[in-house]
């Protein structure tokens, strides 16, 4: 699989890059916790959760199309579909449109899962179709109860949104085909651009699902360091409110998102999950020779 992935990129003239796995700065995301390491008795480092920040610095320096194929790390993620160390293919295409990037990502996935049909679905439409709700205006707690679920009344709207997504919607995505979920809500933009579509701001972000398994996450990349600083600060605030540590901002990375940063799309694909689906297994520890023990 690794050989086929490298060949896929070689055919498209995408350059392989090797990024540092250990960085003085942690990636900032409300819901991703970083594994830290003692670099020296008084210096802390963080294992990368994706090579995104480093690759974007290379893009700003004029690298052109690049890909990374290697291991990334996330704290506390152990389960049927999670291992704290996993293999990621992440690539960036300069000047490529959002739609073409989706097509290319589907082609990459098809390399391993076969020629499956591809269907696009907006985040809004997925909530309407599978959960029967307008996710911006309906009562999401009541909606979850209608699906015989027991949400906690104390949960925020955004938690309920993720609850419905994971418990009701995701299991129904990609049963016969690759389902591409697009047009994410602006508060789920992460590092994607926000555009106006059908009189509504949506993030140019996509994920592809097969048999209910999330396989990738892609963006039309936000080129604006100021906007990203605002999002990171908001993320850090939310982390502190949730009782998690806030992380220092990586100024070298934010500085790269300026006039020198090219218009590009990027995506990361979970290789272990492709392996899982390719072999029709249900748990990563069935396909990984070295995985962390699951609790149940």
């Amino acid at each position: 699989m690794l050989g086929a992935a490298r060949q896929f990129f070689a055919e498209r003239n995408v350059l392989e890059v090797d990024c540092c796995a250990l960085s003085p700065f942690a990636a900032i995301d409300v819901n991703i916790d970083v594994i830290s390491a003692d670099v020296s008795p008084n210096m802390r480092g963080y294992l990368h959760t994706s090579p995104e920040y480093a690759m974007k610095r290379l893009l700003a320096a004029g690298s052109g199309d690049i890909y990374f194929l290697g291991h990334v790390f996330r704290q506390g993620e152990i389960g049927r579909l999670h291992n704290p160390e996993f293999t990621m293919a992440e690539w960036y295409r300069v000047g490529m449109s959002f739609e073409t990037m989706i097509e290319e990502t589907a082609e990459f996935i098809q390399l391993f899962l076969g020629k499956l049909p591809v269907k696009q679905l907006s985040y809004r439409k997925a909530f309407e179709l599978f959960a029967g709700v307008n996710y911006t205006s309906d009562d999401l707690f009541a909606a979850a109860r209608r699906h015989q679920l027991q949400p906690d009344p104390a949960w925020s709207r955004s938690t309920l949104q993720h609850f419905l997504l994971t418990h009701v919607i995701e299991p129904k995505l990609g049963n016969q085909e690759l389902t591409v979920l697009t047009d994410y809500p602006p508060n789920e933009a992460a590092l994607a651009r926000i555009v106006e579509k059908d009189n509504e701001p949506v993030a140019e972000r996509f994920e592809i699902y097969f048999r209910g398994v999330e396989l990738c996450n892609g963006y039309h990349e936000l080129p604006d360091g100021h906007e990203l600083r605002r999002r990171f600060t908001a993320d850090n605030l939310e982390r502190v409110q949730a009782g998690k540590p806030a992380y220092a901002l990586d100024e070298a990375f934010l500085g790269a998102l300026g006039p020198h940063f090219p218009d590009c799309c990027g995506v990361s694909v979970g290789i272990d999950r492709l392996l899982l689906l390719r072999h029709k297994r249900s748990s990563l520890n069935e396909v990984l020779p070295f995985s962390w023990p699951q609790i149940c």
Partner: peptide, 13 residues
């Protein structure tokens, strides 16, 4: 049974 469920960028349950 105890199953860990998490969207890549979302809340873990």
């Amino acid at each position: 049974n105890n199953e860990f469920v998490k969207p890549g960028k979302g809340q873990a349950f």
